[in-house]
């Protein structure tokens, strides 16, 4: 059931990305270009999404188990550190360069365009670099 639910959630998420305009990098860049001719649409995407999700998180915070039986995995980290900020800055720079963030890029993989395939391949490589780096530093910390 958890697997089926994850599939349906992915599907709904994808529909939302398409309907909202997030899968069009030129629209995303139109939002990020506040000094140019500005398209505020994506502010409404964020607002609408947070409005709905905040109701769910209110109820989720009162539960220890999810409806389908798994334990609630709400992040517990509270530390505001260098990696959080630097990671955010790096992500924002990449987002501003191409107009793709992870969700829309992955959702566009099989639409017949080559750009999302190139972007997602590079993104996976970046995630792999992070993974290798964190394993190496974890390894040296143990010695």
């Amino acid at each position: 059931m958890n697997i089926l639910s994850a599939f349906v959630v992915g599907l709904v998420f994808g529909f939302g990305l398409i309907l909202s305009g997030m899968t069009d990098p030129s629209k995303v860049l139109g939002f990020l270009d506040i000094a140019g001719v500005w398209d505020p649409s994506l502010g409404l995407v964020m607002g609408g999404a947070i409005l709905v999700s905040s109701v769910a998180f209110f109820f989720a915070s009162k539960r220890t188990r999810a409806v389908l039986g798994e334990e609630m995995r709400i992040p517990t980290a509270t530390q505001i550190d260098r990696r959080l900020v630097l990671g955010g800055l790096a992500f924002g720079a990449g987002w501003g360069l191409a107009g793709y963030c992870p969700g829309p890029a992955v959702a566009s993989l099989f639409t017949g365009m080559v750009e999302p395939v190139i972007f997602v391949s590079a993104m996976l490589a970046g995630m792999g670099i992070y993974e290798l780096h964190s394993r190496m530093t974890a390894g040296s910390a143990r010695q």
């Binding site: 959630v9 709904v12 998420f13 990305l17 649409s41 409005l51 998180f57 992870p102």
Partner: peptide, 25 residues
């Protein structure tokens, strides 16, 4: 955009309530 955003929010809501997970791509 508002409707699409609300669908994204609905997906995030379903995922935390049904699966107990954060819908972070």
């Amino acid at each position: 955009s508002l409707a699409g955003g609300m669908l994204i929010g609905l997906a995030a809501a379903m995922f935390i309530l049904l699966n107990g997970r954060i819908a972070g791509i």
